[in-house]
Design a protein around this nucleic acid. Structure first.
Lengths: 128, 128
DNA sequence: GTAACGTACAACCCCGTGGTTGTACATCAG
DNA sequence: CTGATGTACAACCACGGGGTTGTACGTTAC
């Protein structure tokens, strides 16, 4: 478990960085094999500077890290940040599941006593 | 399994929508319990119109769906889209894992035969 | 040394986003 | 009916994203 967390991952930046097909593709590549920025740039139909910016966005989101090797800048994927984002989505799924549990709990009580909190719109039976 | 996919989920929009704390909070709420836009708006320190826009962004990303009930617009979370995003991140983790496997495969062969694809930068041993 | 390569960074343009306010319309309560 | 509530939508503004080109600088190759 090599988890050397540098800064507390900024979830806003992470999701914003993932909201672009080119950047997701870059992450996909460098998670499998690290590559220099110029090598990455050859894969896309845009200028080197554009790819450079994408890598910079990914770096600020801590989805990749850059390391100089001679005149090249080697980009490597950071799976820890990917996991952090995945965990957040997993928590959302968990919350949804718990809501289902609550509904089933209600359905299991055929004519159970009083609902704990009928504050929100208890179907006012429109008289029409 | 109630998976009625309306349109092919636009991953760009999904991640972009999740890249905002207010919107993530809205999703968190309506995944647990559906709520009207005005009820949601009471929770945040911004105008109703701003919250309305956030909900619109979430709706375009298919993270929530809106349903009219009288004069109210009920917002409900769509866990399917959350799962779609989570799956994508899971695939990234999987790719990273496979990369580790490949490295270990190399390390397991002390002087093994030929590597299957030595195309990318086979460490040119700088003569310094 | 000279040239080619890899990178960094600035300036610029277009457009979507996140917020505001204002106005209009439909619905429910009296 | 009138009035309050919930929503929709437009106009507006500031800011940043995604792309371009151009220029400058360090490093490697010959």
């Amino acid at each position: 478990m090599v988890v050397h967390q540098l800064g507390p991952v900024d979830i806003d930046r992470v999701f914003a960085a993932l909201a672009d097909a080119t950047r997701r593709d870059i992450v996909t590549r460098v998670l499998q094999q690290e590559a220099s920025v110029s090598v990455l740039a050859r894969n896309y139909d845009m200028s080197f500077a554009a790819v450079q910016k994408h890598v910079a966005v990914l770096e600020r989101a801590q989805l990749v890290s850059k390391h100089r090797r001679g005149r090249e800048q080697i980009v490597r994927g950071d799976v820890g940040t990917v996991r952090a984002a995945a965990r957040l989505l997993g928590n959302l799924e968990e919350l949804w599941r718990s809501r289902i549990d609550r509904l089933e709990q209600v359905l299991d009580e055929p004519s159970g006593g009083d609902p704990p909190c009928p504050s929100s719109a208890p179907r006012p039976t429109p008289s029409s």
